[in-house]
Write a protein that binds this DNA or RNA. Structure first.
Length: 257
DNA sequence: ATGACCGCTGGAAGCGGA
């Protein structure tokens, strides 16, 4: 079974590329981020025609997350993280499909830092940490997949020089990510590819793609019973090189049945 | 090298993104 995550950077603009990618790679479950559209304008019919059921939490203009599952399997479990009733951003959606629980995560970017957006990022991370602990405690097989907006280590970015003050590489979100992983999750891409660059994002600016000036921002964290079944993990880099591409490429894991 | 690219909104330039 293949589970993927893809920050589409606008599902309206990206729909042709998204449908191509689904047809070519046929993930059983796909988590999407940055829909940048409202619930009413989510392209559910086109995805259904492509063979996928979906749950989604849209937001006009920015944010927005969805989970797709092959067939009619998907059931929504939760929209939004517990812990802050005033949080209006569409950044967390949890669903059950094909015998798993899967969450689509779009962690706040946090720039500029320091500042209120960075504080929001760290607070959101704490709420994710608490909820992830509750999921682990339940014993359910879980995949937490999405755009964490964290470059975990210096090995996950082409160069630190022009990003040193950026929220993506600060010690606090890095520590939060490391703490989350060490609480019982497996960072699937790093687990199977400890020494390779596994970039998932290349900036539109400064010819980042052609220079391979990328970074690893999109992660799939596996609970223990899923991690034991992990057989492959990768990034569909070619998707980033297409015309009208998102600035992220899909990342995926293959789980033994 | 603080470089100027995208998508979206609104109906122009500005915001948010990373």
């Amino acid at each position: 079974m293949k589970i993927a995550t893809f920050n589409v950077n606008g599902i309206t603009a990206r729909l042709p590329r998204l449908l191509e990618w689904l047809a070519e790679t046929s993930p059983d479950i796909a988590c999407l981020q940055e829909l940048k559209t409202s619930d009413e304008t989510f392209p559910a019919a086109a995805l259904r025609d492509a063979g996928y059921s979906a749950v989604w939490h849209g937001q006009k203009g920015f944010n927005g997350v969805a989970v797709l599952a092959k067939g009619d399997e998907i059931v929504e479990r939760r929209r939004g993280l517990p812990g802050d009733p005033d949080d209006s951003h569409s950044r967390y959606l949890e669903a059950a499909a094909h015998g798993l629980v899967v969450a689509s995560i779009y962690l706040p970017n946090g720039n500029p830092q320091p500042g209120p957006k960075f504080d929001y990022k760290l607070a959101w991370f704490e709420r994710l940490d608490s909820h992830a602990a509750a999921l682990l405690k339940s014993g359910t097989p879980v995949v937490l997949a999405g755009d964490y907006n964290v470059v975990p280590t210096d090995a996950d970015i082409y160069a630190m020089r022009s990003w040193r003050t950026n929220a993506l590489v600060q010690p606090e979100p890095r520590a939060a990510f490391a703490r989350l992983v060490s609480s019982g999750w497996t960072d699937a891409l790093r687990e199977l590819h400890p020494d390779q660059t596994m970039y998932t994002f290349w900036d539109y600016m400064r010819d980042a793609w052609s220079r391979d000036a990328g970074m690893r921002l999109d992660h799939l964290l596996l609970s223990e019973t899923i991690a034991q079944r992990l057989v492959a993990a990768g990034v569909d880099r070619n998707v980033r090189g297409l015309s009208n591409a998102s600035d992220h490429a899909p990342a995926w894991v293959e789980i033994r049945d």
